[in-house]
């Protein structure tokens, strides 16, 4: 798994590449927590190149969404969801919990 973080004026963009499983999910959580600890709660997750996500990865996403939406201070939105990842979101009942965008440009523009 590779993580690329870009800080914009109104939000942070995190591009995740490869596999998010029990081995790599802690690194994703750490990267996100660095942003949250800095007091930034508007996050775009670009999943265009995500190949696999397990429930360990889903736990990171749900926990982050809870933290960001608390006090109405922000939100996690998803950009570029691959078909298989979308099926995981649908199965886990996650789709209604995240705003989805076709690409990161429109997702960043949302904020």
């Amino acid at each position: 798994m590779e993580i690329e973080n870009t800080q914009f004026k109104h939000c942070d963009l995190i591009k995740v590449t490869g596999r998010v499983d029990s081995s790599t999910a802690p690194r994703l959580a750490e990267a996100i927590n660095n942003i949250l600890d800095a007091g930034r709660f508007k996050i775009v997750l670009d999943l265009t190149k995500l190949e696999f996500i397990s429930s360990a990865g889903l736990r990171v996403l749900i926990s982050t969404q809870k933290t960001c939406k608390r006090y109405n201070r922000g939100e996690v939105v998803i950009a570029g969801m691959p078909e298989y990842i979308k099926s995981v979101f649908d199965l886990a009942g996650f789709t209604p919990l995240f705003r989805l965008f076709d690409d990161s440009i429109s997702a960043v523009g949302y904020f």
Binding site: S54, S55, A56, L58, R59, I62, S63, Q65, K66, K69, V88, L91, A92, G93, L97
Partner: peptide, 23 residues
Amino acid sequence: PDLSAPLRDRKSHGLGFYMMCQW
């Protein structure tokens, strides 16, 4: 897991076993 629960009530665990059985 309760898949229709609002965000604040979503539990962190239980999804893995559910997904195994579903897939």
